[in-house]
Design a protein around this nucleic acid. Structure first.
Lengths: 204, 204
DNA sequence: TCTTTTTTTCTATGACTGTAGAGAATAACG
DNA sequence: CGTTATTCTCTACAGTCATAGAAAAAAAGA
């Protein structure tokens, strides 16, 4: 008699397809981080996930489907972390927490930078992926500007520059930090990225 | 009797190999800008340059040689433009001229952004290309910091933050702007990038 | 155990790629 | 015009890739 699967109501099958998809996405991240996007072939990803060549087909009909899903999931996860970290905060503290979560300050997030760069490259010539980027950036911009407005209301920000411009500047710096960190020699750890953030906040 | 080739002293051949290499690099840029790095096959590049399949071989033994040379040349050209634009300037005016030259403010430089992103992606897993990036960024950082020091000496900058941190921040913003511009919908022109720069300068 | 359904493996296929190199075409020169 | 050196074209090759789909394996249920 099968054990009772609490959550999956409409999925009487042996394999939870949604869960399997996440496993495959995990394997995809690991491969891209280790071998680069060029090394992320269907065979390599399947092997990394513990399967043979054609096993991914039922879960992702094409490679592009898999990659798009994987990239989307990175954004979702980051947004999730941001939500957790900024919960209950506002103004400058919220802005600081937000930025510290996006900056590639540890090994894991440097790996994420090494994954987002191939994504950007694909998005340059792929409208669907560009749209994923655009939506996430619109979300981030809105959050940043909102925090700036809160900070201004509390007197934490007095700079004679409109919040949209300040927010755009900060967002660009956060994106550029991904490049800087991903292309740095392995030895070099941080880049004063944290100091750069504090400097910016202190100027507001 | 052949016309006298003023500059090429040691090149009695019919084709100036160095010049031909630059032609091929030009064709490569155009292809990458139009079709993306994935579409930049040897055949496509050769066709764009007006040649058949194997014609590139004598000038670039391998594709990687061609791409590395092409990317290197983009950096060289940008550095050249920067040198011209900042000549005779110092302090904030020099910093402004420098940044305005790097920011993707017109069609041509948006195309350069669309070329540098594939370069970054390749550099993530290619030590030689990462080194090209590293060297250019070291150059830029030195120039930015020098201009900041001049500005501080002239009393244009009074911010209580060290120049290296301010310079790193500005550089990251300039890099991030490449992403923002390259992935923007074709309709949307600028992004207030110029305003973002002025805002930063006004805060120093 | 036998049947049915689901999952995975394995092999094949067609397309595309960088690269190699023989031969044709072209230009230079006597 | 003929010879030589240079440049380019064209075909071929070996490798890799995503994808397809038949067959095997595994699991579930009676």
């Amino acid at each position: 008699m099968p054990i009772f699967l609490g959550s999956a109501a409409d999925v009487p099958k042996i394999v939870d397809h949604d869960e399997r998809r996440l496993e495959l996405v995990d394997a995809t991240w690991r491969i891209i981080a280790r071998l680069g996007i060029e090394g992320a072939t269907m065979r390599e990803i399947a092997t990394e996930a513990g399967f043979a060549n054609g096993a991914l087909k039922p879960y992702f009909p094409t490679k592009d489907t898999l990659l798009t899903f994987a990239f989307q999931h990175v954004f979702n996860r980051t947004n999730q972390r941001i939500a957790e970290v900024t919960a209950g905060k506002k103004g400058i503290p919220a802005l600081r927490a937000f930025s510290l979560e996006v900056l590639p300050l540890d090994e894991e997030r440097v790996n994420e930078a090494r994954i987002v760069i191939p994504f950007w490259q694909k998005a340059v010539n792929d409208a669907e992926k560009a749209e994923i980027h655009r939506k996430s950036m619109a979300l981030w911009t809105a959050a940043i500007v909102a925090h700036l407005a809160e900070a201004r209301a509390d007197g934490e920000v007095t700079a004679a520059v409109d919040d949209a411009t300040l927010g755009g500047h900060l967002l660009n710096m956060l994106l550029g930090a991904q490049i800087t960190a991903a292309l740095a020699p392995a030895a070099q750890a941080s880049f004063g990225l944290e100091e750069q953030l504090e400097a910016f906040l202190s100027l507001l």
